[in-house]
Every structure is written in structure tokens, then in C-alpha cells.
């Protein structure tokens, strides 16, 4: 494997966003790119990352390899990179280590690190292509704000999408709270658009603790996409450049 990223910052942000949810994961490398799928310890949340080969320049992977990496170790090394550094990941065919090289585009500084790999026996889930009842695109910062505001009142949030809009509501010991967003197009600032595509109304309840955790990815993309259907996990998607993505799935709360 040899994969060169223009900005080390991208991988730094991805790992930073998921390291509190999952600890040890396999980075599955093949000629289409680098993928990761891992569930949290409670098995109700799942991270699915895809960094397509096109996100790297160049990208070469001659043989499928799984790089088992402890994310806290990876984060320690990524913190040694400057945000603007060029990052090259390298691994042999049957690797014991993954090699990370940081190059400054402005100076002649070159730093090199090896991280020891681990054998990780990871359960892989088959995630079906789903036609969701509701798909909501909104500013990532807005979603983060709503989750952070509501977690002050309650541990769970009801997300209800209707043709009127999308309502995030919660109730707790001190009282209730709700935020409603309607579809909204801002020609001057398209990054503020809220788009609600609905085939049928849907209402589901989720644990805010996990949603707040997912929102750590807000720095990766201006927009977040929420996809909901009755009785299936919520998909929270941050789209990256070159069709790469960081997706989170969360099982809905169920009644007594």
C-alpha cells in the first residue's frame, strides 16, 4: 500500500471524530481505497468510513490488506503532523507496521512514524441499500447545535419528519424542548440550506449521547445528511471530497 493524502488534516479529523466511539479497527485497503467499519462496544452504533482511491494522489494497493490499528495510537501519531502536511501511508504485503510520512509543503521537514499493527477479529455487517422515508440535508453545525442543546434536557430525542418539516423534541426532568426546521433555500448562502425529501412521514427516537458523538465529525463537511425510515437505524452521513464519506448508523430506541 502506498497512499498519499494532500492534507494530513483529513485523516486527523476523521480519526478524531470516531476515536471515542470505536477503539481498535481494521482499515481495509484494496484498489478502490481505504474502508473501515466498526461498531461501538454496545453494538447500537456503527461507523462506516470510505476514503476512495481518488481522495489520494497517488494511490496504489497491490493486494488487499487489513491494517488493524488502535485509534488512540493512530491519533497520537497524527497529532505529530501539521494540518497542512502531506501524509503518505505505506504498508507491506504482510505488514507488522503501518508507516506514516509527513512532509511539510513549505519547509524541507520530513517526519516518519511506524505504528505497530494488531490482529483484530472484527464482525462485519452487511448494510443493505435502503430507500429511506425521509432524507434531511442540513448544515452540520446546526445539527450539532440541536443535539448539544437538547442533551442538556434529556438523554433521548424524537426526530419527526413530516411535510411540514423536521422536528427534534425531547422531554426531561426539568421540562421539554423542541426545534423545528422547515425546508429552506438560501441562494446567497447555500451552505445554510435545509432540504427535506419525504416519501412518507416518519418518527423515531434516538439516544442523544451517540448523536452528540457523531457530531464530532462536523468539521469534515458543511452539510450533514440524516436518513430515516420506520424501525431501521438512522444514517448520519458526512460527505467528503471525491465521493469519500464518513457514515454513522444508530439503532432507534424501542418501546417497553
Amino acid at each position: 500500500l502506498e497512499a498519499r493524502l494532500e492534507q494530513a488534516n483529513l485523516l486527523k479529523k476523521v480519526v478524531d471524530a470516531i476515536k471515542d466511539l470505536v477503539q481498535d479497527c481494521n482499515f481495509d485497503c484494496n484498489d478502490s481505497g481505504i474502508a473501515l467499519q466498526a461498531m461501538d462496544n454496545s453494538h447500537v452504533a456503527l461507523v462506516s468510513m470510505m476514503l476512495k482511491a481518488e481522495s489520494f494522489s497517488p494511490f496504489r494497493c497491490d493486494r488487499n490488506i487489513a491494517l488493524g490499528i488502535n485509534l488512540s495510537s493512530l491519533m497520537k501519531v497524527l497529532r505529530c503532523a501539521q494540518n497542512e502536511d502531506i501524509l503518505t501511508l505505506k504498508a507491506d504485503d504482510a505488514p507488522d507496521v503501518v508507516n506514516l510520512v509527513f512532509e511539510s509543503s513549505e519547509s524541507d521537514r520530513l517526519s516518519e512514524y511506524d505504528i505497530k499493527l494488531m490482529d483484530i477479529d472484527q464482525e462485519h455487517l452487511g448494510i443493505p441499500e435502503t430507500e429511506y422515508s425521509a432524507t434531511i440535508s442540513m448544515p452540520a453545525a446546526e445539527f450539532q447545535r440541536i443535539c448539544r442543546d437538547l442533551i442538556a434536557l434529556s438523554e433521548s430525542v424524537a426526530i419527526e419528519a413530516t411535510k411540514e418539516g423536521v422536528k427534534f423534541s425531547c422531554s426531561g426532568d426539568i421540562g421539554n424542548g423542541a426545534v423545528t426546521l422547515r425546508s429552506h433555500t438560501n441562494v446567497e448562502k447555500p451552505e445554510l440550506n435545509v432540504d427535506i425529501a419525504l416519501s412518507e412521514p416518519v418518527a423515531l427516537t434516538f439516544s442523544l449521547k451517540y448523536l452528540v458523538n457523531f457530531c464530532k465529525a462536523s468539521g469534515l463537511s458543511g452539510t450533514v445528511k440524516l436518513c430515516l425510515s420506520s424501525e431501521v437505524p438512522l444514517l448520519v452521513e458526512y460527505t467528503l471530497a471525491s465521493n469519500s464519506y464518513l457514515r454513522f448508523y444508530l439503532a432507534p430506541k424501542i418501546g417497553d
Binding site: 452487511g126 437505524p233 424501542i254
Partner: peptide, 14 residues
């Protein structure tokens, strides 16, 4: 609402 089911019950094995 109370608990959550494991994601394995929704997604199953590939």
C-alpha cells in the same frame, strides 16, 4: 422508549 436492539439484528451478516 427504552432500549435499543443491536445493529446486528437490522443488518445481519454480509
Amino acid at each position: 422508549p427504552t432500549g435499543q436492539r443491536s445493529l446486528a439484528t437490522y443488518f445481519g451478516n454480509p
